[in-house]
Design a protein around this nucleic acid. Structure first.
Ligand SMILES: [Zn+2]
Ligand SMILES: [Zn+2]
Ligand SMILES: [Zn+2]
Ligand SMILES: [Zn+2]
Lengths: 136, 136
DNA sequence: GACCTACTTGACACTAAATATCAATAGAAT
DNA sequence: ATTCTATTGATATTTAGTGTCAAGTAGGTC
């Protein structure tokens, strides 16, 4: 959170009370959330401001967008703050980050083969996490 | 298209006039489309039916869902009708399919390492296609 | 061909997610 | 403290998609 406020200031954004409140709320949630859920926990903050702030935090790699298999979207505080991919459990909804240079290399290789200038990419893995797999 | 109608019948779905119309419309569009665009070209077909039909065609791997970088979604007739990934050009909007067993293997490897039971996955590549890259 | 029945359709209302507008507010720099 | 501009909040609007249900029709049976 302190780290996050610094990243906001460093990039020239104002450190406002609503932004602090959204950051605090995100820090206190320990599961993937929807903006609606986040907004419900912040009744004094305008809904549009919550949307705007989460969008801003995505650009700063503080929060990341997690697309679910059904097309809906959740958000999660990024653990690493760097490029990564997700393991998304369809049972408990947990999201785990991972990064793998060889996966990224395979992606880059495909772009190169197609003479495609790669700017970014996404990869999401859907299934059942370890604890949901062993519990069932 | 003939292939598509067969796939509909084989799976027990009725081959109705609206479904034919949607299939024909999709066959005649040669770029990624939104349901709204598709629906505009089919004024005699109810909007809900267009949505329902496209959803059905996705299940039959006749059409696939293409998530863009900005979070919006387009659809495209699948060339291969099999598992694949996309090269999505941010300039012209073109979508190219590719499949790569070694990419899929890298994804499976990551799931295995995390004791995650992989059910499905997605991978989308964003950037500039060959012709947009050389033209600029 | 006529009949039947379950599948499908279309119109409409509705929800969910997000953006646009714009006057009022408040960081933060001097 | 003053000023200037980024930001906020209330509200309206957009976009994408789903729920409902009476009416219509494909496709099998006689
Ligand atoms: Zn993430
Ligand atoms: Zn990657
Ligand atoms: Zn595809
Ligand atoms: Zn794959």
């Amino acid at each position: 959170m302190t780290d996050s406020t610094e990243r906001l200031e460093d990039t020239g954004y104002r450190l406002t009370a609503p932004r602090r409140a959204v950051l605090d709320a995100i820090a206190s949630i320990n599961r993937p959330f929807t903006i609606e859920e986040l907004s419900e926990g912040l009744p004094n903050i305008g809904r549009a401001t919550v949307f705007r702030t989460v969008k801003l935090l995505q650009e700063l790699d503080i929060v990341c967008r997690v697309p679910l298999e059904d097309g809906s979207v959740r958000y999660e505080r990024s653990r690493s703050g760097r490029h990564h991919h997700h393991l998304i459990c369809s049972v408990c909804g947990s999201v785990t980050e991972f990064s793998d240079p060889s996966l990224d290399a395979a992606i880059e290789q495909n772009a190169t083969s197609a003479s495609f200038e790669l700017e970014s990419h996404s990869a999401e893995l859907y299934g059942r996490c370890d604890s949901c797999r062993t519990t069932s």
